[in-house]
């Protein structure tokens, strides 16, 4: 390559290179464009085939299940005959379980709205963009704020006697805080927890909480929303 070349141009038909090709070079500013070789494949047939296989697997599983499981059908709807308990569809039973603990305006309106706002906001907080471990920097102030907020939440749950939420939150918060005290380089499971970011902990808490509440609402609630054991 000669020293005084001010540009590099090329054409290619290799599909695996990025199609960045046209460059105008004026005066002395020179641009250099290089096709970056990447691990690309043609969608046809590679993606199309995989999607077809996924669809077929799904169909097979659905058909098999539909042969051996029957959709429920109870008696004709009767506004005068209230079943006890009356339950929402399973994916709302977590919320219905919340209604049992908190006033309706909190459980039925505030919490769902906050969840939706929280979900929408996720990509606009750059909290997790780097996925920085929670205890990487400013350790002590973070620990104070974290513990303070957790305590406020725990008090709130305690006041409303929401013990299932209280215990789960306490356990998860304790696991998060454990990362602060455990020195680096101890066992892979601990190391894994230690390197988690704050959004990771929040989302994990949310998912576990939602699962537990849904399971309780589905299987452990009987007449008058009282606690029952599903196997009795």
């Amino acid at each position: 390559m000669s020293e005084n070349r001010k540009f590099e141009a090329g054409i290619g038909s290799d599909f695996s290179k990025d199609p960045v090709r046209i460059v105008f070079i004026t005066k002395k500013t020179s641009a250099k464009v290089r096709g970056v070789l990447r691990d690309q494949v043609m969608s046809y047939p590679h993606v199309v085939l995989r999607e077809i296989i996924a669809f077929e697997l799904l169909t097979i599983v659905l058909v098999l299940m539909a042969l051996f499981w029957d959709a429920p059908l109870e008696q004709l709807a009767n506004p005068l005959l209230t079943p006890n308990p009356a339950k929402a569809p399973w994916y709302f039973l977590g919320l219905q379980e919340l209604l049992h603990y908190f006033p309706p305006i909190v459980a039925g309106v505030l919490i769902p709205v906050l969840i939706i706002i929280g979900l929408v906001a996720i990509p606009y907080f750059d909290l997790n963009v780097k996925g920085e471990p929670l205890w990487n920097a400013r350790r002590t102030p973070r620990l104070r704020i974290f513990c303070g907020i957790v305590l406020i939440f725990l008090m709130f749950f305690g006041v409303y006697k929401a013990w299932s939420i209280f215990v789960t939150t306490a356990i998860i918060a304790a696991l998060a805080v454990a990362g602060y005290f455990v020195p680096a380089g101890r066992g892979s499971a601990i190391e894994y927890l230690r390197s988690r970011s704050l959004p990771w902990w929040l989302m994990t808490w949310f998912i576990i909480m939602a699962c537990i509440l849904t399971i309780i609402g589905t299987f452990f609630r009987g007449p008058g929303w009282s606690w029952v054991w599903p196997w009795r």
Binding site: P72, L73, E74, Q75, L76, A77, N78, P79, L81, T82, P83, A86, K87, A88, P89
Partner: peptide, 8 residues
């Protein structure tokens, strides 16, 4: 329109 549906 059964009991399950109505009350849910």
């Amino acid at each position: 329109w059964d009991q399950l549906a109505f009350w849910a």
